[in-house]
Design a protein around this nucleic acid. Sequence first.
DNA 1: TATGAATGAGTTTTCATTCAT
DNA 2: CATGAATGAAAACTCATTCAT
Lengths: 212, 212, 212, 212
Amino acid sequence: MNAGPDAPQARRRLAPEARTPQILQAALEEFAERGYAGARMAAVAGRAGIAKGLIYHYFPSKDALFQATVHACTQPLFEEAERQLSGHAGSARELLGALVRMGYARISADQQERTLFRLIITEAERFPDLARFYREEMLARATAIARAVLRAGVAAGEFRPEVADMPGLAEVVLAPVLMASVWRMILGESDAPAPGVLRDAHLDLLLRGLSA
Amino acid sequence: MNAGPDAPQARRRLAPEARTPQILQAALEEFAERGYAGARMAAVAGRAGIAKGLIYHYFPSKDALFQATVHACTQPLFEEAERQLSGHAGSARELLGALVRMGYARISADQQERTLFRLIITEAERFPDLARFYREEMLARATAIARAVLRAGVAAGEFRPEVADMPGLAEVVLAPVLMASVWRMILGESDAPAPGVLRDAHLDLLLRGLSA
Amino acid sequence: MNAGPDAPQARRRLAPEARTPQILQAALEEFAERGYAGARMAAVAGRAGIAKGLIYHYFPSKDALFQATVHACTQPLFEEAERQLSGHAGSARELLGALVRMGYARISADQQERTLFRLIITEAERFPDLARFYREEMLARATAIARAVLRAGVAAGEFRPEVADMPGLAEVVLAPVLMASVWRMILGESDAPAPGVLRDAHLDLLLRGLSA
Amino acid sequence: MNAGPDAPQARRRLAPEARTPQILQAALEEFAERGYAGARMAAVAGRAGIAKGLIYHYFPSKDALFQATVHACTQPLFEEAERQLSGHAGSARELLGALVRMGYARISADQQERTLFRLIITEAERFPDLARFYREEMLARATAIARAVLRAGVAAGEFRPEVADMPGLAEVVLAPVLMASVWRMILGESDAPAPGVLRDAHLDLLLRGLSA
DNA sequence: TATGAATGAGTTTTCATTCAT
DNA sequence: CATGAATGAAAACTCATTCAT
């Protein structure tokens, strides 16, 4: 049609290794903004700067694209936390503080993480694979980290002995961080409870509630 | 065509007061199962046992039906909690325990409440009205209750003085109950962390973390 | 858009009993001209003078529409032949002549019948239902008629005894009529072997080949 | 990417004389299974073990490929029959029997021939060239052979004199063989009238119907 | 010669909404 | 008030064809 100066840089051939993440990033944005049903393949293509059809060269259906999108962006999620956990030298209280602060900092900073979380909440019922993925790759990893900190604290005599193996406690310890994220999803940056404020109250309650 | 005895309750004229809740209930079910974009007006009509067209006599659009649906089912949500709060005579620790237990019990029992919560999470970004509604009618009411309990406990000397006015603490105290609901949404009854287990850990942490 | 005098007579509500055959007729024309894969639902709608969507009100898919189309137009096919068979009083030679003449006349006249036949040939491999339908509702009926005539001729002493039960003979007797139809499909009215000419040669061969 | 020993014969340069029949064979299979509109160029490439793009080096369009495909596989069709005809020494009855038997044998054996015939029936309307091709290269050759046999039989006094020049008789004589092929197309090997059975009835009718 | 990434027009299908009955 | 036939815009998906490599 037109090949004017604004024309969308006609037909740039890329290796699949370069194109795939580009599409996945565009898909993440679109799915995040509109949810699964609301997302349009044409919009994904638009965001990626390619033609609709090309998406189908890489993913057989909207469904497959969605699942690939979610899977693709979980890699870096827990890496930092697990690094902190294994590399930490100081007290368990300090470690707990550092991890909680990291969690709240992420909520403030990382749009993509909230987005991912929302997609899982929203679509888990229709994509059973997603629920399994959340349970195994996200919740299990997060509670494992929390449990390790609790045990370290007990071992060091900083936390009271019962918390080492109290069922459900790891989840309860995590919950406020996750809810901070949910609130931010729902209410937006301006109206949600401020992460910094939640963090301070959360740490105050935790340190008091766990210590020996 | 036929209005014989087997005809599926053909063309039964009802007063608007009777039809409206029937439609809203059907809409809640459909929106809950499919989300806003995935819900079909024809399916809402089907669930309500009426023709598609009739919905438009009562609600001007899918959008309006959705908002009415969410608004309609929040009424009974906090009534019991507020009744308990104002009618309570015993210690603040007992009151806190009773309220937390009620919260977790609801998660186990009330499908509709989780459903409502999910819809808000899912659609808040596209329906700003919904976010405002959640903030004013749900989160604000819930934190007000929590804050009242904390203050009562401080006043009675059961809780340490700082918790009376610590910003964000009411939200942190509530968060694990809400996350229990979110996990149940995502993972289903069988795979989500068990509410009873979370409840016990939660109460243990709270009572220890708040007490004077 | 336009509501000029040529506008396609906006939104004319019809009872399903009236609309269904209208759509089927349009579909027959379109499928006949283009085959299954080549036919466009939009074109069917256009021929029927309705909107695309309405077709899906009556038939769940292109596939279903196609099968309904073929089924719908077989009713009148063998009625006349079967009537002639049961009502005939004269000689078997005369009956055979009348039926063969009717067959060739149909090929000349009835576009729709050729069309139907072509669709079956074309699509039978992809629609196994169609093959079964052809075998049971068309070929079986046609050979039954032919066999009845042969037996009548033997009973009357007009045909030699072997032809009463010779396997495959009914099919061989019918074949030239059907091939006349196939040739007409392939070559068109002007280039195909003329039905009248084939008919005379066919009858000559038959009467000589069958007679006692 | 990799050209390791397991790679599916990556990028093997072939002379056009070798590539063309490879593509045509693949195209015949694909067109046969799916018809013209249903066939996909990618599938043709896949069957031929080459990339889509390469087809366009040899044929300018799907259309051209189709026509080339049909033309390419008619060469050997009548060669044997014409050889038998010119080389035959015995009686006309024997020659007729041999040719008819050969025809039915082909139907049983040669998938490719039925396929070709189906494509012509299916697509002749949309490809006028195909109809002309069928008329000149197939039907005309076949009737010429049949007519030659009839004349030989009359000349030898085996057949009655009228059949030497009866218009349409050659076509009628051929028709059952062709219909046997059509039935086999429609109904498949298992449900179609058995070629051997048709052959015997056909010969019986012919010899009786033609003889002096 | 050969590949397969890239395009985009065209197709089926869905569904909110309207409106004749 | 009530129905469901009818519309049409929009969305998922397909595939012949092109072209950078």
